[in-house]
Every structure is written in structure tokens, then in C-alpha cells.
Amino acid sequence: MNARITLRVDGRDRPVALDTRTTLLDALRDRLSVTSPKKGCDHGQCGACTVLLDGRRVVSCLILAVACDGSEVVTAQGLVEEGEPHPVQRAFLEEDGFQCGFCTPGQICSAVGMLQEVKAGHPSQVTDDLTGPVTLDDEEIRERLSGNLCRCGAYVNIVAALREETAPSEETSPRAETSPSEEAES
């Protein structure tokens, strides 16, 4: 069965007719030529296909495209604004938070979604204070990005990139454990 849907992808309306069994990932990559989300496993295990769906991070290989009709999809490519990389993209670049880069668009979308969750005060398993604002220390970064595999093992630098990205000032030490979430750019 086919369906006509419209996705708003990286700021553009993209009408498409597709087989209702098509995943959001396949729709993006094979029907709409949006290849920044990567297919690493197609089973929701690796996170390389992570996109922001109406602002929330999702693995696009586990969602049917028809379920997203009318939704806003932002991929790593769409985080670039007026030619300028998103601050998280810049942090990954500057901290060398990747090697082969295959997982990177997913890592970056996941990180942007994660920073918004932190800003909204959503606690994780390792959050100290469940009632107050979340302090994004290294443990929180690790806990919240554990759904995105990086086989090159660039994890140390991914943590550094997000630590850098959320640091309140340049005086933050490399092992800084705290930074007020309110100041997190996202």
C-alpha cells in the first residue's frame, strides 16, 4: 500500500509517495536523497541514523515514514544555519570527536537532542538531584549518549566536545564536572 505524506526535512516541505512499510530512514536516504543519517544496523542498535523528529531524538530506522506525516525532521545537515555549523558540530570538529565520521551525524543529532532534554530538566539514571536543574557532567554525557556507537572509539573526545560545548566559560578545566545546564546552548 502506498501513501502520500509530507515531511518537513531540514526546513523544507518534502511531499513523497511511498510504500507504507518504508522506514523514515529509507524515506530520507533513498526517496528524498537526504543521506546525512546513516544506516549502520537498521535495527536501532547503533544510533547512526539518529535525527530530531519534532525536536526529539529518534533512531529513524525504527519509525515508519507514514507515522511522521506532517512532522519536522532535522538531520545533521539541517543543523547548519546559514552556512554556519551548529555549535555542537563545531565542538566535534575542534575536539576531534570522530575519526571515520560514519556515526557522527547521528552522534551530533543525539547530542543536540540530549542537550535539550537536559535543558528541560529531564533526569537520567545518574542525575544527582531529581528535582533541580540537571548538571551536565561527564557521567551525564556518557549516560545520555550511550545509544550511539562509535567503533573508532572516539568517545574520549566526544565527551570532551560536549564538555566544551556546555562549558560556561573558558576557565573550565579539562576535567570539569559541572556546568549549569541553563547555559547550555542547544
Binding site: T35, S36, K39, T75, Q89, G101, I108
Partner: peptide
């Protein structure tokens, strides 16, 4: 030095073999 292909990689614009079309 930064990776020459790094900007493309963080922007999701670096083309992998599975992206060929």
C-alpha cells in the same frame, strides 16, 4: 591541524560508499 574532511563529516555531507547514487 583539523581534518580536511572534518567539516563535511560533522555536517553530514561527507559521502560514504553507502551514500552513492
Amino acid at each position: 591541524a583539523l581534518r580536511p574532511d572534518g567539516v563535511l563529516k560533522v555536517r553530514g555531507e561527507f559521502a560514504y560508499s553507502s551514500d552513492l547514487w
